[in-house]
Simulated assay, not measured.
Amino acid sequence: MAFEFNGGPPTQYGHTTLVYLIGVISSLLFAITGRLQSVEKEKVKSELAFLKAQINPHFLFNTLNSIYALALKKDDKTPDAVVQLSELMRYIMTNSNDEVIELSKEMNYINNYISLQKTRLGNTVNIIYSVIGHTSGKAITPLILISFIENAFKYGVNPDQTSEIYIKIDIEEEILTLYVSNKKTFSVQSDSGIGLQNTIERLKLVYPNKHALMIEDSAEKYIVNLSIKIR
């Protein structure tokens, strides 16, 4: 028995089969897309957890160094510095794993950190710190700003040279702008830059297309200008 195909319109059976196959393929594609999105979210969470695990000991190590320097000088401000450190660590232990935190709490953390540095450094460094705007009703990812500030104290402080650190935080509606500038003092401190690099990676993961980071690294100055669209 011979069959001839004349290129005519498909039969009702062929049409139904085609619709069924399209439905099956569409369902598979939808399931695969959903699975890929789920895997990507888990990957982002794992990367953030890894980065935070590196950041936290980094802060603790550098802050303990600050208090150690005070203790060596038998400075009367050492007890205050210990209290400030306890507040820093309490914040890290209780809030650093949150996806977002109230901006007021993050700002309080930064204030404590800068106060601790002022206590440690005294009049040896000119620290200019200002905050413009209101934090009410705003939220931000924890520890996303501090590395840029901490970096200025690492590389902008040397008792044998004139040191100046300028920090300005401007909060205007949904945009937070951080400006940090320090004169390079070529301090003998050495660091692998893990904290700063991790923060840059976290910005890419948490604020994709919602931040702008400009870094000016010249022979004499290091300047950071970061803008974030906060929630």
Rank of each mutant, 00 (worst) to 15 (best):
N111E: 13
S115E: 09
N111L: 05
Y68I: 11
V24P: 00
L213S: 04
T141F: 01
L48T: 08
V83C: 01
G122T: 07
A2C: 10
N151W: 08
N111K: 11
K45F: 01
Y166R: 07
K210Q: 13
E42D: 15
K77H: 08
P142E: 15
S147F: 07
G193M: 02
V44P: 05
L226C: 05
K184G: 15
F153E: 07
T11I: 04
P10T: 08
N123W: 02
F30V: 13
I132A: 11
V19G: 09
F186T: 06
K138V: 10
P10Y: 13
Q161F: 14
N123L: 04
M214Y: 09
L72Y: 07
M214I: 13
T119L: 14
K183C: 09
N62F: 05
L36T: 15
I200R: 15
H211R: 00
G14S: 11
S130W: 10
V180P: 02
Q197P: 01
E106Y: 09
Y68N: 06
V125C: 08
G156R: 05
Y68R: 00
P208D: 13
A31R: 05
A212D: 11
V44A: 02
F30A: 14
L88Q: 14
E4S: 12
V180L: 00
A152Q: 04
E201R: 11
K45T: 08
V188I: 03
Q117G: 07
I171P: 10
V83K: 10
P208A: 02
R120T: 04
N112M: 02
D76Y: 13
T177Y: 02
F186D: 09
N62M: 00
I175H: 12
N108Q: 06
I67T: 03
T94E: 14
S86I: 00
L48W: 10
L176P: 04
G137Q: 03
G193H: 12
Q37R: 14
L88D: 09
S66L: 12
I223C: 11
L121M: 03
K154F: 07
Y207M: 03
M214N: 15
Y91F: 14
Y109E: 01
E106D: 14
A219Y: 08
T119R: 09
A69M: 04
S227W: 01
L213M: 04
G195M: 11
L48Y: 02
K73T: 11
Y113G: 01
R35S: 15
E99C: 03
I230S: 05
I228G: 04
